[in-house]
């Protein structure tokens, strides 16, 4: 916690404190629907931050982050369903597996000098490849889905992560805050300087003594590990997993929209982006219901238009624009 606020101006601390109080108290003030939206906001704030480490800090564009969500989710869920392993241990397994997956992809790509668009497509390819593989993996339910046993309502069991939405709300809030603290620490550390140097100009970074291969690997591994926890959360919150859903390219795109719209490479950007886009999507759904429009697709068209408007008029994202207006440094 202290790492989170050290060195911030008083005004920023006040804003942060207000946000903290609002978020901590929210479950007591809102209904089940708003709570579910908030959980989704935090979920994307968390995954967005994980992705931001790799792309926003280190400049490596991944369009296949659903791979790590999926592997993390299936790892913990399968251990729980088949061997009754508690999800905290399952999370450990998820972290190990996803870090390995990230490192393998990173090793192959960076050793062979694959970068930019090619790297992005390689990440899509691995995610899609895995999706189809899981579609045929009967032990994990294949395309029919893997389901977690649901206990009776009202019981909160932290050990097995069975409980009401409020428990999941605080869990994902803790993850999000943890990710923010970690990002802030990393950005100010040696690693953070190295990553930004690699993002800006890899050749110049090498000439300054930075082993760019190694630090790109660290970025991919860490980002994958963090994303895996989002997968574990997803599995135990929704209680069902389908390869088609969890590994799809659409999921990967959802993960990266927040940080880009919010402000790539900034600390607050992924969070701001998630809290703008998720309610926007839900708000549009509500609006459509209100207007009595039921044609499929209208909602997404509107969403696409909003996305287009933001990227055309605020190509650096929402947060840097807000921060400048408020007189904060756009971190």
């Amino acid at each position: 916690m202290r790492a989170l606020v050290a060195g911030l101006p008083a005004r920023a601390r006040a804003v942060l404190a207000l946000v903290a109080v609002l978020l901590l108290g929210a479950p007591f003030a809102v209904d089940a629907y708003v709570l579910s939206v908030l959980i989704l906001c935090l979920y994307f704030a968390y995954t967005g931050q994980a992705w931001n480490i790799m792309m926003g800090f280190a400049g490596q564009l991944s369009l296949g982050h659903s791979l790590y969500v999926g592997i993390g989710a299936y790892a913990a869920a399968a251990l729980f369903v088949h061997f009754d392993v508690n999800p905290w241990l399952g999370a450990l397994a998820a972290i190990v597996l996803c870090t390995l997956a990230g490192l393998v992809i990173g090793f192959l790509a960076f050793r062979f000098g694959i970068a930019g668009v090619y790297f992005a497509i390689l990440t899509i390819a691995f995610a899609e490849f895995t999706r189809i593989g899981f579609d045929h993996w009967n032990w994990l339910g294949a395309s029919g889905g893997l389901f977690l046993p649901v206990k009776e309502r009202g019981v909160t069991d932290l050990a097995t992560l069975r409980g009401p939405p409020v428990m999941f709300y605080y869990a994902i809030l803790a993850l999000t805050v943890g990710a923010l603290a970690l990002s802030r620490l990393l950005l100010a550390s040696r690693l953070g300087y190295y990553w930004r140097a690699i993002r800006e100009d890899e050749e110049a970074a090498q000439a300054l003594g930075i082993d760019t291969f190694r630090y790109k690997m660290v970025a991919v591994g860490l980002s994958a590990a963090m994303t895996s926890l989002a997968g574990v959360f997803f599995a135990f919150y929704y209680n069902n997993l389908f390869p088609e859903q969890i590994f799809s390219m659409g999921r990967s795109i959802e993960i990266i929209l927040g940080p880009i719209i919010g402000g790539l490479g900034t600390l607050a950007g992924p969070i701001v982006g998630a809290f703008v886009l998720t309610p926007l999507a839900d708000g549009i759904t509500e609006l459509m219901q209100l207007l009595g429009i039921e044609t499929p697709g209208v909602k997404q068209v509107f969403y696409g238009v909003c996305l287009l408007v933001v990227i055309v008029f605020l190509p650096n994202g929402i947060w840097p624009a807000i921060a400048r207006r408020l007189g904060f440094a756009p971190r």
Partner: peptide, 28 residues
């Protein structure tokens, strides 16, 4: 001349709009 990721989001937005206009007009 903008970075790749902004181009990507722009065209993803175009893609989302295209798919869903088709969905609106022709159904699933």
């Amino acid at each position: 001349t903008r970075p790749e990721h902004t181009q990507f989001i722009l065209l993803v937005a175009v893609a989302i709009i295209l798919v869903n206009v088709q969905l609106m007009v022709f159904g699933p």
